[in-house]
Amino acid sequence: MQDFLSSLVMVAFHGLAYGMILYLISVGLSVTMGLMGFVNLAHGVFAMAGGYMMLSAMSRLDVPFPLAIVIAFCAVALASMVLERFLYSRLYSAGELEQVLFTIGLIFMSVAVARLVYGPLPQPVHIPGYLKGQLHFLGRDFPTYRVFLIVFSVSLVALLWFGVERTRWGAMVRATVDYRAMAQSVGINTSRLFTLTFALGSGLAALGGALGAEIIAVEPTYPFEHLVFFLIVVAVGGLGSLRGPFVAALLIGVADTACKYWIPEFGAFFIYIATIAVLLLRPEGLFGKAT
């Protein structure tokens, strides 16, 4: 019994850490898909880029950990802005197929570049000394880094939600998700709004990829391999919603950890079946707006 309780706590803890990373990565995808109606399969590329950015800044340039994270966020956000302006924006009015093809193309290119620059193997992760080791509380040991991960992500998410609820930018995003035509007609500069939101979403994905490098290994196949999970978070959570993907990411994080811990022989069965069930019952996702 004691054993079971202790494994329950560990599953919940690690599931939470994984879920938070999934959320950080996917929330931008949810917002951009809801906002711009763009099927961006290449979103994982930004997460991967963030991971590479941070790890190589730390290992090759000896940049301290906090600064490396800031660099990852800024660099990816900026790069995504350029991509959005020159490529993505041309396809907003195109069909789903074009968007899917274009973003698959981006994935292929990024996988190739990653392999050329960093080689095919996963990047080693260096956790700074002050985040190594275990924290002791509730009568148990928890890895310090993951505790930091959870605390940091939760504060980030709180900041993001606050931003969306309380700032002018957030109000514009919400209005545009709900009533695109109206938002345009009341003079919201949707094109600038799209660029900024896209950059923020990509930056968050980069943060997720960088912070989560210890959980989701940074390797060239990253954008393909984890695409299904990012998409599941968004589709199950509901497009354009902030809370939906949060719930979905935590559910998936915990469920996946639990499956791996207790019933490894079933792999990701449970998650796929649950995804199929949710999408059949609510095609718009758990928190999406019905159309």
Binding site: R90, G105, M109
Partner: peptide, 14 residues
């Protein structure tokens, strides 16, 4: 090769 495939897709779409 992979880069070429990716670039080809982007070009075809554009």
């Amino acid at each position: 090769w992979y880069f070429g495939i990716g670039a080809m897709l982007v070009l075809v779409v554009m």
